[in-house]
Design a protein around this nucleic acid. Sequence first.
DNA 1: AGCTTCGCCTGCTTGC
DNA 2: TGCAAGCAGGCGAAGC
Length: 271
Amino acid sequence: MPELPEVETVVRGLARCVRDLTIEEAVVMRRDILRPGSLDQTVLAGARVAGVERAGKNVVLRLTPRMAVVVNLGMTGKLLFHGPGGCSSVHREPHLHAAIRFSSGGVLCYHDARRFGSILITRSRDIPAHLRIGQDPFRMGARDFHELLKGRRATIKAVLLNQKHISGLGNIYVDEALFRAGVHPATPSWDAAKRARLILTAARTVLKRAIRRGGTTVRDYRTHDGSIGSFQHELAVYGRTGRPCIRCGTPIQKTIVAGRGTHFCPVCQRV
DNA sequence: AGCTTCGCCTGCTTGC
DNA sequence: TGCAAGCAGGCGAAGC
């Protein structure tokens, strides 16, 4: 499930491969992956890639003349770049829904088995505003974060998962950040606000470490060149149901919070 | 308006 | 062994 660290990894890898390349042709095999309001892919021909950025969990290709290709990978989306030489094994990857062919001969392919992902082609200047997503956890100040949590009735987990409030966190990193902060995921947001600084710091620490490890590969996630991340080996609670807490040895529990499978230590994490 | 639930979608896992 | 049901979850829409 590509969250902030996975998307950041893809963005950094892609930036090295496609910056300054000129698009020869863009093709979309399945129209329904284009978000409503997206421009047609044919407008991309002739444009040059000015840069690759991340907006929350979205990969953003900045183009000249001013356009952007915004890719949301959903759960199983992959952006794979094949250099001019090509790579036969990765070409066999199924569920290919779109591709951008560069005049240099390289190809950027978009695959998505479950089709929860989407692509938006737009001339908007302000992508985060266009997508209506909240601030990035690395840019949000402690004061703003406290304001966000304060006075909300929803659980802290629901607030952190909501991309309109804060962008980039998903199920894995919310569970990991709350474990690190010692906060129970079902704690009401207004109550957790007292520990806002602690939670924000924990989230940033977990995200940074995961970025350093190239993200978490549970099953589907791959980087731009098809390789896997390694943060799954450092997960403290996610996917560790019944196994001992790394701090106190108590078996990790799993419940449903905010409609999501939620992992926590019943001793280390308090409401 | 804020919050929760539902449904989309497919592949892997579980259980009979 | 084989098949059906269950489960996974980002995100937008619908409902409370």
